[in-house]
């Protein structure tokens, strides 16, 4: 390639240096957060990145004396359940709308698409009343029910299923597979990249969700990580090393997943972003 042989121009070096500085700035909050989580209270007001005596005591305190482990579990549970449900239902609806011809198909599609226009903030008040009337306040089902299916996911999956050739599906029909099995065993695997994109977005969205969990939960046993962290930080006001430890615990899982699956995640974000 010509590019490799070309001599490195000074312009490029400047660009590289600026990009490097930018990258350091981008990472600064995260680095300082982790750094503070390993410090004792009396060192927290010093700029030094690495403590003279690093300690795990903040983490130990956090896990022994607060409900972080529980919140962690709740967050995982809620994010996983929502993701599985969204993957299944959104692709089922997207598949049906893409591959079946029936009366009312267009209407259903437009109706579902129109839900994209409704901001969550408008729905939380009716949802809260709904949850109260069904006795779902402060429960797992109450946390999960608004996100069992999403209009965006249906739209995304429909786009992808449309590019699946009908021949594949017809061949399976001739083999005598039931329609449901054609969907799960033939069609779903063909759109695996789209599914992984949807999974990433849904999981991340639920993992970081704040407004609805804040509204629907009241007892600490049902908090998700963001709600727990918010109330914890309020109570530990200004014990910054503890707050940073909590923030680090909330951030770590997605960072680890990213380090292992970087390629897939970025591809998924592009796929989801562009088609959606």
């Amino acid at each position: 390639m010509a590019e490799i042989k070309a001599p490195i121009r000074p312009g490029k070096i400047i660009i590289w240096c600026l990009l490097f500085i930018g990258a350091v700035i981008m990472m600064t909050p995260i680095i300082f957060m982790f750094s503070a989580s390993f410090k004792y209270n009396d060192e927290i007001y010093e700029l030094a990145l690495i403590s003279s005596e690093p300690t795990l005591s903040n983490y130990i305190y956090l896990f022994e004396n607060t409900e972080f482990l529980l919140w962690f579990k709740n967050s995982i549970l809620v994010a996983l359940a929502s993701t599985v449900s969204v993957l299944f239902f959104d692709s089922l609806v997207g598949y049906t709308l893409a591959k079946f011809r029936f009366r009312g198909r267009k209407l259903v599609f437009i109706a579902i698409l129109s839900t994209l226009m409704i901001p969550t903030e408008m729905l939380v008040i009716p949802w809260y009343i709904l949850a109260r009337d069904f006795g779902l306040l402060d429960s797992y089902i109450g946390l999960i029910f608004p996100g069992i299916m999403t209009g965006l996911g249906v739209f995304l999956m429909k786009q992808f299923f449309e590019s699946v050739p009908d021949d594949y599906l017809d061949a399976a029909r001739i083999d005598g597979l039931s329609e449901f099995r054609i969907f799960t065993q033939i069609a779903m695997p063909l759109v695996a990249p789209a599914l992984s994109a949807l999974a990433i977005f849904t999981f991340l969205g639920n993992w970081t969700a704040f407004l609805w969990p804040l509204i629907v939960t009241s007892s600490a046993e049902l908090f998700t990580i963001p709600v727990g962290l918010s109330s914890f930080s309020g109570e530990f006001q200004s014990e910054w090393e503890m707050i940073m430890t909590g923030a680090a615990v909330a951030t770590l899982p997605t960072l680890l997943v990213f380090l292992f699956l970087q390629r897939y995640i970025i591809r998924g974000v592009i796929l989801g972003g562009l088609k959606g």
Partner: peptide
Amino acid sequence: IPFLTTAVAMAWV
């Protein structure tokens, strides 16, 4: 990476 962080956590940072 900042895109993957939790807004609540980073707000406190």
